[in-house]
Protein backbone atom coordinates (compact mmCIF):
# COMPACT_ATOMS: atom_id res chain seq x y z
CA UNK A 1 0.00 0.00 0.00
CA UNK A 2 2.82 2.42 0.91
CA UNK A 3 4.66 1.59 -2.24
CA UNK A 4 1.54 2.12 -4.18
CA UNK A 5 1.04 5.51 -2.65
CA UNK A 6 4.60 6.43 -3.50
CA UNK A 7 4.13 5.43 -7.09
CA UNK A 8 1.02 7.46 -7.39
CA UNK A 9 2.79 10.39 -5.77
CA UNK A 10 5.56 10.13 -8.37
CA UNK A 11 3.09 9.94 -11.18
CA UNK A 12 1.29 12.96 -9.80
CA UNK A 13 4.55 14.88 -9.76
CA UNK A 14 5.28 13.68 -13.29
CA UNK A 15 1.85 14.74 -14.43
CA UNK A 16 2.20 18.18 -12.87
CA UNK A 17 5.71 18.54 -14.26
CA UNK A 18 4.73 17.70 -17.79
CA UNK A 19 1.68 19.93 -17.48
CA UNK A 20 3.96 22.85 -16.54
CA UNK A 21 6.34 22.13 -19.42
CA UNK A 22 3.38 21.82 -21.77
CA UNK A 23 1.93 25.12 -20.59
CA UNK A 24 5.26 26.89 -21.10
CA UNK A 25 5.66 25.49 -24.59
CA UNK A 26 2.08 26.40 -25.39
CA UNK A 27 2.61 30.00 -24.29
CA UNK A 28 5.74 30.69 -26.31
CA UNK A 29 4.18 28.74 -29.17
CA UNK A 30 1.13 30.96 -29.11
CA UNK A 31 3.25 34.09 -29.41
CA UNK A 32 5.14 32.65 -32.36
CA UNK A 33 1.87 31.63 -33.95
CA UNK A 34 0.39 35.09 -33.33
CA UNK A 35 3.26 36.62 -35.28
CA UNK A 36 2.95 34.10 -38.10
CA UNK A 37 1.16 35.56 -41.13
CA UNK A 38 -0.24 32.21 -42.25
CA UNK A 39 -1.62 31.42 -38.81
CA UNK A 40 -3.16 34.89 -38.49
CA UNK A 41 -4.82 34.22 -41.81
CA UNK A 42 -6.18 30.91 -40.53
CA UNK A 43 -7.48 32.60 -37.38
CA UNK A 44 -9.17 35.29 -39.47
CA UNK A 45 -11.30 32.53 -41.05
CA UNK A 46 -13.28 32.73 -37.81
CA UNK A 47 -13.99 36.40 -38.57
CA UNK A 48 -14.94 35.58 -42.15
CA UNK A 49 -17.41 33.06 -40.76
CA UNK A 50 -18.79 35.72 -38.39
CA UNK A 51 -19.34 38.09 -41.30
CA UNK A 52 -21.10 35.46 -43.43
CA UNK A 53 -23.22 33.98 -40.66
CA UNK A 54 -24.16 37.27 -39.02
CA UNK A 55 -25.07 38.87 -42.31
CA UNK A 56 -27.33 35.93 -43.13
CA UNK A 57 -28.90 35.91 -39.65
CA UNK A 58 -29.76 39.60 -39.67
CA UNK A 59 -32.01 40.87 -42.39
CA UNK A 60 -30.59 43.75 -44.45
CA UNK A 61 -32.58 46.28 -42.51
CA UNK A 62 -32.56 44.65 -39.06
CA UNK A 63 -32.38 47.60 -36.70
CA UNK A 64 -29.97 48.23 -33.88
CA UNK A 65 -31.77 48.62 -30.55
CA UNK A 66 -32.97 52.11 -29.71
CA UNK A 67 -33.29 53.32 -26.14
CA UNK A 68 -35.29 55.82 -24.12
CA UNK A 69 -33.96 59.24 -23.10
CA UNK A 70 -33.41 57.94 -19.56
CA UNK A 71 -30.76 55.53 -20.82
CA UNK A 72 -28.53 58.23 -22.38
CA UNK A 73 -25.01 58.12 -20.89
CA UNK A 74 -24.13 61.10 -18.67
CA UNK A 75 -20.88 61.62 -20.57
CA UNK A 76 -20.23 60.17 -24.00
CA UNK A 77 -16.53 59.18 -24.01
CA UNK A 78 -14.21 60.55 -26.66
CA UNK A 79 -11.78 57.95 -28.00
CA UNK A 80 -9.07 58.03 -30.66
CA UNK A 81 -8.55 61.58 -31.87
CA UNK A 82 -9.81 64.15 -29.32
CA UNK A 83 -8.84 67.21 -31.40
CA UNK A 84 -7.61 66.98 -35.00
CA UNK A 85 -4.21 68.66 -35.23
CA UNK A 86 -4.77 70.17 -38.69
CA UNK A 87 -4.32 74.00 -38.46
CA UNK A 88 -7.36 74.47 -40.71
CA UNK A 89 -9.47 72.45 -38.26
CA UNK A 90 -8.86 74.89 -35.42
CA UNK A 91 -9.87 77.76 -37.71
CA UNK A 92 -13.12 76.01 -38.59
CA UNK A 93 -13.75 75.26 -34.92
CA UNK A 94 -13.32 78.94 -34.03
CA UNK A 95 -16.18 79.94 -36.29
CA UNK A 96 -18.52 77.11 -35.39
CA UNK A 97 -17.49 75.02 -38.42
CA UNK A 98 -19.23 77.46 -40.79
CA UNK A 99 -18.60 76.38 -44.37
CA UNK A 100 -17.15 72.98 -43.37
CA UNK A 101 -16.97 70.99 -46.63
CA UNK A 102 -18.40 67.56 -47.34
CA UNK A 103 -17.47 66.08 -50.70
CA UNK A 104 -19.13 63.04 -52.21
CA UNK A 105 -17.23 61.72 -55.19
CA UNK A 106 -15.60 58.66 -56.74
CA UNK A 107 -17.91 56.26 -58.59
CA UNK A 108 -20.90 58.59 -58.66
CA UNK A 109 -22.70 60.28 -61.55
CA UNK A 110 -23.44 63.44 -59.66
CA UNK A 111 -20.56 64.43 -57.32
CA UNK A 112 -21.64 66.59 -54.40
CA UNK A 113 -19.76 69.54 -53.02
CA UNK A 114 -21.70 70.34 -49.87
CA UNK A 115 -21.25 72.58 -46.86
CA UNK A 116 -22.18 71.80 -43.28
CA UNK A 117 -25.08 74.27 -43.57
CA UNK A 118 -26.47 72.42 -46.60
CA UNK A 119 -26.14 69.04 -44.88
CA UNK A 120 -27.86 70.30 -41.74
CA UNK A 121 -30.75 71.58 -43.84
CA UNK A 122 -31.42 68.09 -45.19
CA UNK A 123 -34.21 65.84 -43.83
CA UNK A 124 -32.95 64.55 -40.51
CA UNK A 125 -33.61 61.67 -38.19
CA UNK A 126 -32.82 61.18 -34.53
CA UNK A 127 -31.93 57.88 -32.87
CA UNK A 128 -30.85 56.90 -29.37
CA UNK A 129 -28.44 54.03 -29.82
CA UNK A 130 -25.69 52.18 -28.02
CA UNK A 131 -22.12 52.70 -29.16
CA UNK A 132 -19.94 49.60 -28.59
CA UNK A 133 -16.21 50.08 -28.52
CA UNK A 134 -13.96 47.23 -29.61
CA UNK A 135 -12.28 47.64 -26.21
CA UNK A 136 -15.44 46.47 -24.46
CA UNK A 137 -17.19 49.57 -23.13
CA UNK A 138 -20.50 51.02 -24.31
CA UNK A 139 -22.20 54.42 -24.24
CA UNK A 140 -25.69 55.47 -25.24
CA UNK A 141 -26.18 58.69 -27.16
CA UNK A 142 -28.87 60.52 -29.09
CA UNK A 143 -27.72 61.18 -32.63
CA UNK A 144 -29.28 63.48 -35.19
CA UNK A 145 -28.27 63.50 -38.82
CA UNK A 146 -29.18 62.79 -42.41
CA UNK A 147 -29.51 59.27 -43.74
CA UNK A 148 -26.47 58.32 -45.76
CA UNK A 149 -28.86 56.82 -48.33
CA UNK A 150 -30.29 60.31 -48.90
CA UNK A 151 -26.82 61.66 -49.76
CA UNK A 152 -26.06 58.64 -51.96
CA UNK A 153 -29.31 59.13 -53.88
CA UNK A 154 -28.29 62.73 -54.56
CA UNK A 155 -24.86 61.66 -55.75
CA UNK A 156 -26.23 58.69 -57.76
CA UNK A 157 -23.88 55.76 -57.27
CA UNK A 158 -22.55 54.11 -60.40
CA UNK A 159 -23.32 50.39 -60.83
CA UNK A 160 -19.67 49.56 -60.22
CA UNK A 161 -19.62 51.13 -56.73
CA UNK A 162 -19.26 48.53 -53.98
CA UNK A 163 -17.84 50.36 -50.98
CA UNK A 164 -17.92 53.80 -49.45
CA UNK A 165 -14.73 55.26 -48.07
CA UNK A 166 -15.00 57.92 -45.37
CA UNK A 167 -12.10 60.35 -45.38
CA UNK A 168 -11.52 62.24 -42.14
CA UNK A 169 -9.79 65.46 -41.15
CA UNK A 170 -7.81 63.82 -38.34
CA UNK A 171 -4.56 61.90 -38.30
CA UNK A 172 -3.28 59.41 -35.74
CA UNK A 173 0.49 59.11 -35.56
CA UNK A 174 0.72 61.14 -38.76
CA UNK A 175 -1.53 58.75 -40.71
CA UNK A 176 -4.92 60.01 -41.94
CA UNK A 177 -7.92 58.32 -40.37
CA UNK A 178 -10.39 56.73 -42.73
CA UNK A 179 -12.97 53.98 -42.71
CA UNK A 180 -15.13 52.08 -45.16
CA UNK A 181 -18.39 50.13 -45.28
CA UNK A 182 -20.20 48.18 -47.96
CA UNK A 183 -23.50 49.14 -49.56
CA UNK A 184 -25.61 46.99 -47.25
CA UNK A 185 -24.62 49.10 -44.26
CA UNK A 186 -24.49 52.29 -46.38
CA UNK A 187 -28.19 52.02 -47.26
CA UNK A 188 -29.25 50.76 -43.79
CA UNK A 189 -32.00 53.04 -42.41
CA UNK A 190 -30.00 53.82 -39.24
CA UNK A 191 -26.79 54.71 -41.06
CA UNK A 192 -26.58 58.50 -40.81
CA UNK A 193 -24.12 61.35 -41.12
CA UNK A 194 -24.67 62.93 -37.72
CA UNK A 195 -24.18 66.53 -36.66
CA UNK A 196 -25.86 66.49 -33.23
CA UNK A 197 -25.17 64.48 -30.10
CA UNK A 198 -27.82 64.74 -27.37
CA UNK A 199 -29.48 67.71 -29.12
CA UNK A 200 -26.25 69.73 -29.21
CA UNK A 201 -23.79 70.14 -32.09
CA UNK A 202 -21.23 67.32 -31.96
CA UNK A 203 -18.50 68.03 -29.39
CA UNK A 204 -15.01 68.08 -30.92
CA UNK A 205 -14.01 64.89 -29.10
CA UNK A 206 -16.97 63.10 -30.66
CA UNK A 207 -16.20 64.11 -34.24
CA UNK A 208 -17.43 67.69 -34.88
CA UNK A 209 -18.91 68.75 -37.13
CA UNK A 210 -19.91 65.58 -39.03
CA UNK A 211 -19.44 61.89 -38.28
CA UNK A 212 -20.66 58.54 -39.49
CA UNK A 213 -23.04 56.41 -37.42
CA UNK A 214 -23.13 52.80 -38.61
CA UNK A 215 -25.09 51.32 -35.74
CA UNK A 216 -24.53 47.59 -36.27
CA UNK A 217 -20.75 47.85 -36.11
CA UNK A 218 -18.09 48.58 -33.49
CA UNK A 219 -16.95 52.10 -32.62
CA UNK A 220 -13.84 52.34 -34.80
CA UNK A 221 -16.04 52.08 -37.92
CA UNK A 222 -17.88 55.31 -36.99
CA UNK A 223 -15.53 57.76 -38.74
CA UNK A 224 -15.36 61.23 -37.16
CA UNK A 225 -14.43 64.67 -38.65
CA UNK A 226 -15.82 63.67 -42.08
CA UNK A 227 -14.71 65.69 -45.11
CA UNK A 228 -15.21 63.33 -48.03
CA UNK A 229 -17.24 60.24 -48.93
CA UNK A 230 -15.77 58.34 -51.84
CA UNK A 231 -17.55 55.53 -53.72
CA UNK A 232 -15.13 52.83 -54.89
CA UNK A 233 -15.25 49.36 -56.41
CA UNK A 234 -12.38 47.99 -54.34
CA UNK A 235 -10.52 48.88 -51.15
CA UNK A 236 -7.10 47.84 -52.42
CA UNK A 237 -4.91 50.80 -53.23
CA UNK A 238 -6.62 53.08 -50.71
CA UNK A 239 -4.15 53.89 -47.94
CA UNK A 240 -3.02 50.49 -46.57
CA UNK A 241 -5.69 48.66 -48.56
CA UNK A 242 -7.48 47.00 -45.64
CA UNK A 243 -10.37 49.43 -45.56
CA UNK A 244 -9.64 51.50 -42.48
CA UNK A 245 -7.04 53.15 -40.29
CA UNK A 246 -7.10 50.52 -37.54
CA UNK A 247 -7.43 47.74 -40.10
CA UNK A 248 -4.20 48.94 -41.76
CA UNK A 249 -2.28 49.86 -38.62
CA UNK A 250 -3.29 47.17 -36.12
CA UNK A 251 -5.03 44.41 -38.10
CA UNK A 252 -8.50 45.17 -36.74
CA UNK A 253 -11.22 43.39 -38.67
CA UNK A 254 -12.80 45.31 -41.52
CA UNK A 255 -16.15 43.83 -40.47
CA UNK A 256 -16.86 45.27 -37.03
CA UNK A 257 -20.11 43.44 -36.33
CA UNK A 258 -18.80 41.36 -33.41
Amino acid sequence: MNRRREISRISRRKLLGSAAIGAGALLSGCDQLSGNAGFRKLLSKGEDANFTVQRSLASRNALAAEFGEDKISDIFPANGTRYPNLPAYAKFAERGFAGWPLLINGLVDNPQNLTLEQVRAMPSQTQITRHDCVEGWSAIGKWTGVRLSHLLNLAKLKKSARYLVFHCADTLGGIPYYESIDLIDAFHPQTIIAWNLNDEPLPIGNGAPLRLRVERQLGYKHAKYLVRIEAVDSLTGIYGGKGGYWEDVADYEWYGGI
Binding site: C30, S34, G46, A250
Partner: peptide, 23 residues
Protein backbone atom coordinates in the same frame (compact mmCIF):
# COMPACT_ATOMS: atom_id res chain seq x y z
CA UNK B 1 1.66 38.29 -20.06
CA UNK B 2 1.74 34.69 -18.78
CA UNK B 3 -2.04 34.74 -18.58
CA UNK B 4 -2.78 36.17 -22.03
CA UNK B 5 -2.67 35.16 -25.67
CA UNK B 6 -0.68 36.70 -27.23
CA UNK B 7 1.78 37.24 -24.39
CA UNK B 8 1.93 40.93 -25.30
CA UNK B 9 -0.95 43.36 -25.72
CA UNK B 10 -2.47 43.01 -29.19
CA UNK B 11 -6.24 43.42 -29.09
CA UNK B 12 -6.73 42.52 -32.77
CA UNK B 13 -4.74 39.28 -32.38
CA UNK B 14 -6.51 38.44 -29.12
CA UNK B 15 -9.87 38.87 -30.83
CA UNK B 16 -8.82 36.68 -33.74
CA UNK B 17 -7.73 33.88 -31.42
CA UNK B 18 -10.90 34.27 -29.40
CA UNK B 19 -13.37 34.34 -32.28
CA UNK B 20 -11.63 31.50 -34.14
CA UNK B 21 -11.63 29.12 -31.17
CA UNK B 22 -15.15 30.27 -30.28
CA UNK B 23 -16.26 28.60 -33.51
Amino acid sequence: SWATIPGYYDLAAGRRWHLFFAW
